[in-house]
């Protein structure tokens, strides 16, 4: 991992504010930063004064250029790879959603390259399917803070059910000084679904006065959900502020008891608590958050949740398997 440091440093030093005009130029920016380039062969330059832009689904992936000083919202449910280059002082709101209505597998690699004073506000949601619960989702999202003063805010949510598997990789790479990042992931896993979270904050030796924060919370509900979280910090200089936190737990029993005592059925009570868990994040996302919330709600009211909820309440905790070994014979 440290091997690419020098290339990244050089790239940072040589960052020119010329916007890429071809896919190859966009790729070259990423490569100079030591990054592998996603497969993204359709090239889009967002025209001046566009406020909303929607990426066309493309199996070959999209490359998008946001011109200097522009401010745009890009919706991406293309389920493909993407390279996005944000010009100096431009602001991008990037909404990526993965649904698996008819598919059983989605996978996307997206890399955003932020130039001087660029801002990205990224919302990533994996909302499953309303008809089945057996898909697997895989997202690898990377932000390269390549220009001084660039800022990134990343929020992701997913709600797993049935046998679904989710894998969310988020990489925040601070290549130069005075860059800031904030990452927040909230996930709820129901039934036998499983999640994997890999979050990285990397601050290079010459990237000073950086500020980075990472938080990932997971709610586990029901039969046999599984979460594997690995939030990584790689800090190569001392003039930074950096911290991260992870919490993994079950639905809080006290509010659940309270709701039940008010005559609310268990499944509705749990569904309310799960919505309450996502709400603060979804509300902060505005209209997009409301859409994601609706997709989650339709999952929560499905029959599957009810059975899960009742299982949750009726089981008293008995160990499934005795792992102890016979005691020392001496005593």
């Amino acid at each position: 991992m440290t091997g690419s440091t020098t290339t990244q440093e050089t790239a940072a030093a040589e960052t020119v504010e010329r916007m890429p005009t071809t896919i190859d130029e966009a790729r070259a920016l990423l490569m100079a930063a030591g990054e592998e380039t996603p497969n993204a062969s359709t090239f889009n330059i967002i025209p001046h004064n566009t406020t909303a832009y929607k990426l066309i689904p493309s199996s070959s992936g999209n490359t998008v250029v946001v011109l200097p000083g522009e401010s745009v919202t890009v919706h991406d449910d293309s389920a493909g790879d993407a390279i996005i280059v944000i010009g100096p002082s431009a602001a991008l709101r990037y909404i990526t959603t993965a649904r698996a209505e008819n598919a059983t597998h989605t996978s996307a690699r997206r890399t955003v390259y932020a130039m001087r004073d660029a801002q990205i506000d990224w919302i990533d949601a994996m909302t499953g399917s309303s008809s089945h619960t057996s898909a697997d989702f895989d997202a690898q999202n990377t932000v390269l803070l390549a220009g001084n003063g660039a800022q990134a805010k990343f929020r992701s949510v997913f709600l797993g059910a049935g046998d679904e598997t989710y894998r969310s990789v988020v990489r925040m790479l601070h290549l130069v000084s005075r860059t800031r990042s904030h990452m927040l992931t909230r996930a709820a896993l129901l039934g036998k679904s499983s999640g994997q979270y890999r979050g990285l904050i990397r601050i290079l030796p010459d990237a000073q006065k950086c500020d980075a924060y990472q938080r990932a919370d997971t709610l586990l509900i029901g039969e046999r959900p599984r979460m594997d979280a690995l939030p990584v910090l790689e800090i190569h200089n001392d003039d930074v502020r950096c911290s991260h936190g992870v919490a993994i737990g079950r639905v809080d029993q006290e509010p659940l008891f309270y709701l039940r005592s008010r005559g609310i059925p268990a499944d509705s009570a749990i569904s309310m608590l799960v919505r309450g868990f996502f709400d603060p994040v979804l509300i902060s996302m505005g209209e997009d958050g409301r859409m994601i919330g609706e997709a989650f709600s339709s999952r929560l009211t499905s029959a599957e949740l009810s059975s899960v909820a009742f299982a949750e309440l009726s089981t008293t905790h008995t160990p499934a398997l005795d792992f102890t070994t016979p005691h020392d014979g001496r005593s």
Binding site: T218, L220, I221, G222, E223, R224, P225, R226, M227, D228, A229, L230, P231, V232, L233, E234, I235, V240, C242, S243, H244, G245, V246, A247, I248, G249, R250, E312, H317
Partner: peptide, 21 residues
Amino acid sequence: DTYPDMQIDCADVDVAHEATV
């Protein structure tokens, strides 16, 4: 560097991690 792996295979748990640099 901080690499704290959490593999949680049970719903009825309470796990928390925090790190500062």
